[in-house]
Design a protein around this nucleic acid. Structure first.
Lengths: 227, 227
DNA sequence: CTCAGCAAGTTATTATTTTCACAAAATATC
DNA sequence: GATATTTTGTGAAAATAATAACTTGCTGAG
């Protein structure tokens, strides 16, 4: 096993594998082969083996993988054995919905604080979580030991918020603003751009092959101009 | 220009280009070169040209692209000149937050109906949008001309909901349940898996190179066993 | 009208990612 | 204990994707 750069595509799949293993474990399975996993969850067995092999030799030839053991390994690799504390910037609809998103709750992420610029909102609570003044981000983040930030503000404020967050030493953040943010230095950003996803669906519904089953040559009209 | 399969990565970028162009247009620019776009928004100029060239010859050599013209083309290509009507399945926190997500509102997507299995919720409204019985999905979808579905239910119900939706003839859907759904037939699914994104951040924070600056060889401990 | 400069469109190259295929290792069988 | 079977781990091949390099065409100055 060589130490090389692990692709994000690989680590994303580790999450998927872990969920598959949890599912299998819940049904009482003890071991599983890469092929068994692949068949059951529509994955590719070689890819599973390769992804896992980046991190160690977890399987047993002729047997497969011991589910509980592999779950522990993946949990460790993904850092899911550690608690993370999340600060959500933007206490609008989305920020509030994320605050008690069950995905946070059932994982190792705890939403520790909300931030907003609106003085009306500051001091209010969403469930257990208080809304703080965005101006106090750095100190509040320190006080509440926040290590993950979520940007849930309109696009025009996103870059300023990014500055603020990275300035406060936060290394990991998730951006819901419809503008791709780029990291500055050793910071990890996950852009969750719902606009792109929606427009991708729109494209699918609009594309010629979906309208009449015929594939149209888009340049046909244009090339006819000079005829 | 050949008719070939357009990669989703390409269409995703078209969304980004369109936003960049909107930004430029708002600042009064009339034309832009692929290089100008690339520099300003941290993109690759060759990729921009290539992506656009799949759909036609929109630029003028020696000049660049006429911004307004290209915006119109991209709007057309992405189907953003047509209205889409969205049905959201799952009237929990997330479903409700999405119901008045500004991204829907400011685009060509209108949330037409919510669906839930909880009889307590059925008949209530979120803003203007009524919550219907999930059992009535097919007929309600027809009645409200829904062509895009959003799955915002817990993972264990997601596959049943998928069946229901595709059975009703819906061709495009966005899945927020933390389980990757695979299309059956000619249906487009966009999986928005927040769990994967979170765990990716967790991995980043946990990985050895982030702890002490040293790259550890994970198999070191293991290979030492037989020494 | 000609020519220099610019920038699109396109071909070629490189990099990345996925899939295939097989040797090595473990287990089960006789 | 030898052998057939299973399944990993991994190099090689194929498929995708991104980048760079080149060619063509348009514009505007002189």
């Amino acid at each position: 096993m060589k130490v090389e750069k692990i692709s994000e595509l690989t680590t994303n799949r580790l999450s998927v594998y872990l969920r598959c293993l949890n599912d299998l474990a819940a049904h009482g399975a003890k071991t599983v082969s890469s092929d068994g996993l692949a068949k059951k969850f529509h994955l590719n067995s070689a890819q599973i083996r390769k992804d896992l092999a980046y991190f160690g030799e977890f399987g047993v030839r002729g047997v497969g993988y011991y589910i509980d053991e592999l779950r522990k390994h993946l949990t460790k690799i993904l850092g899911l054995d550690k608690q993370h504390r999340v600060g959500i910037i933007g206490a609008g609809r989305l920020g509030m919905a994320l605050t008690d998103y069950y995905g946070f709750a059932q994982s190792n992420f705890t939403v520790a604080a909300l931030f907003d610029a609106d003085t009306e909102k500051i001091g209010q609570k969403v469930g257990e979580v208080e809304i703080f003044d965005i101006k106090s981000f750095a100190e509040t983040a320190r006080k509440y030991k926040i290590d993950v930030a979520v940007i849930a503000v309109p696009a025009e404020f996103a870059e300023d918020v990014l500055e603020l967050i990275t300035g406060a030493g936060i290394k990991a953040l998730m951006n819901f603003a419809p503008i791709p943010l780029r990291p500055h230095g050793d910071v990890k950003i996950k852009n969750v751009d719902l606009t792109i996803s929606l427009e991708s669906l729109s494209y699918f519904l609009a594309k010629p092959s979906n309208k009449n089953g015929k594939i149209l040559k888009p340049s046909a009209a244009k090339s006819r101009i000079k005829e």
